[in-house]
Amino acid sequence: MNNNELLLQRVIAAKEDLDLADELIRDYLPFIHSECAKFAGKSLSLGKDDELSVGMLAFHEAIRSYSRLKGAFLKYCALLIKNRLIDFARHEKHHQGHLSLDAPIDEDGHVLADVIADKDDKQKAMIEHEATIDEIEELKNVMHQYGISLKDISENCPVHEKTKEKCLKAIAIAKDHPEVLAELESTKRLPLNSLTALSGVNRKTLERHRRYLLALLLIYTNGFEIIRGHLWKMTRGIKL
């Protein structure tokens, strides 16, 4: 099996699996580095230059959207990286002149946020940030018990507006009916029958986005106040 065929097989496998895609991108980091450097016209370093992160995202997109009809994978990938970098450059240009809190203000590495935020706010923000991290880690653990991961949810997230609305309607119903959440916790399964009966949403629609619904319903069980607070727009925007 030659290199091209091997790469093609890895691309096909990585289409459905973010971890495999991540692995593939790590292996092809020199290629991404070269393409980004070619575009930027300078040497780039990982962790400092956003262009590399943009290149990696473009590689992810290339994996997802690639088909044999699009020619050689690496050429297709190079094209996508270039296009993404052009978009990014335009975006950055658009935001030029805007002040960033993370912008360095002196040679000692102090940033704007250090100057304008008082000590109390900073400490408060740090505590909040740590609490958020704890909550996210806790959510990941709970989700693991239910056999789902964040990676799965990002794949299973509804895309169409109507489907989103239907899913949000089911979540709102569950939020207002504690017995549905209790059923979820006791059975460790999505209470599809109850959700269908209460929300009137087609069972198939709910089944198709089972993992996504499960994750959001878990957020609405006990704990996860910070994450729930982040979802304020969702709570407000749900149309019943």
Partner: peptide, 16 residues
């Protein structure tokens, strides 16, 4: 992750 991150918006949608 090194090559991507998963984020959640205020409407409950998850993105890579």
């Amino acid at each position: 992750k090194m090559t991507y991150c998963i984020i959640m918006d205020e409407m409950g949608a998850f993105h890579v």
